[in-house]
């Protein structure tokens, strides 16, 4: 309830800010909230919702693959000094390279459909989660591991009872940060290639000089981000119940 009120307040503040800015700028490229929202409502069923689902599934698919590969890999590397000696330099050499520059390559290799977009977002999210998971696994208190090992736990059991739960909150943080990155990359890749998704829609509206429609698309993009963010928040609250102790 408090959360809902918070959102309500934030939306009002944003709308007022937007309106003031549009009045101050006074350019057709920055319409006020009223025409944008009316276009949003008008186009929701016919254009925006289908595009939002198209974009949404791309992001969700990429992030799912990214976390499914990146988290276990990062945890393994973080817990094994020998693996880390090999993998860490590799990761640190490739991590700072902006992966987005590979979009042209991916377009050539995978065509202009869903595959290159999902591949690009996956790679980017995967790296972020891998690096976070590795650091989280390295930072696990020795006492936690020793106490479970003293109970006779195998390596697998140490992973299940200690490493994975200890790293989960950090992995969720990486996912939340990753959501922002993923949507930005999605927008970029949808504007570069293909004829579907919110990125394409926004760019297309811009090309038609339909600025209020463009802003309706931007609102849909923001909606996508908020929904993903809230879903992550809900998942974390379920999976990491102990982190709410004392809050």
């Amino acid at each position: 309830m408090r959360r809902l009120l918070g959102y309500l307040g934030a939306i009002v503040a944003l709308l007022v800010g937007w309106w003031l800015l549009s009045v101050a700028v006074g350019s057709p490229a920055l319409p006020g909230p009223a025409p944008a929202i009316s276009d949003f409502v008008r186009l929701w069923g016919s254009d925006l919702m289908p595009q939002l689902f198209e974009s949404g599934w791309r992001v969700v698919a990429s992030m799912t693959i990214g976390v499914a590969l990146g988290a276990p890999l990062g945890l393994l590397i973080g817990r094994s000094p020998r693996l880390d000696a090999v993998a860490a330099p590799l990761v640190f050499l490739t991590y700072p390279i902006p992966k987005i520059v590979f979009l042209p390559v991916l377009l050539v290799l995978l065509g202009i459909g869903n595959a290159p977009k999902i591949a690009l977002i996956t790679i980017i999210v995967l790296f972020q989660i891998l690096v976070t998971a590795r650091d989280a696994a390295r930072g696990i208190p020795v006492a936690s591991v020793l106490s479970v090992r003293s109970l006779g736990a195998t390596r697998g059991q140490v992973f299940r009872h200690v490493v994975v739960p200890a790293a989960l909150p950090d992995i969720f943080t990486a996912l939340r940060i990753g959501t922002g990155t993923a949507i930005a990359v999605l927008f970029f890749s949808e504007t570069v290639a293909g004829t579907s998704g919110l990125g394409y829609y926004i760019l297309d509206a811009w090309g038609r000089i339909a600025y209020s429609e463009m802003f309706a698309g931007i609102i849909a993009m923001a909606l996508l981000g908020v929904v993903l963010y809230e879903l992550l928040e809900m998942a974390e609250a379920r999976v990491c119940r102990w982190t709410r102790v004392g809050r």
Binding site: S144, L146, S147, S150, G152, H161, P165
Partner: peptide
Amino acid sequence: RTALILQDFGLLPWKTVFHNAALGLEVR
């Protein structure tokens, strides 16, 4: 049948009291 209690208890914060107590049995 050796049990070890560590300086800082070695409890797992993500498991409930019951799960912590039963952990040794589960592992075995």
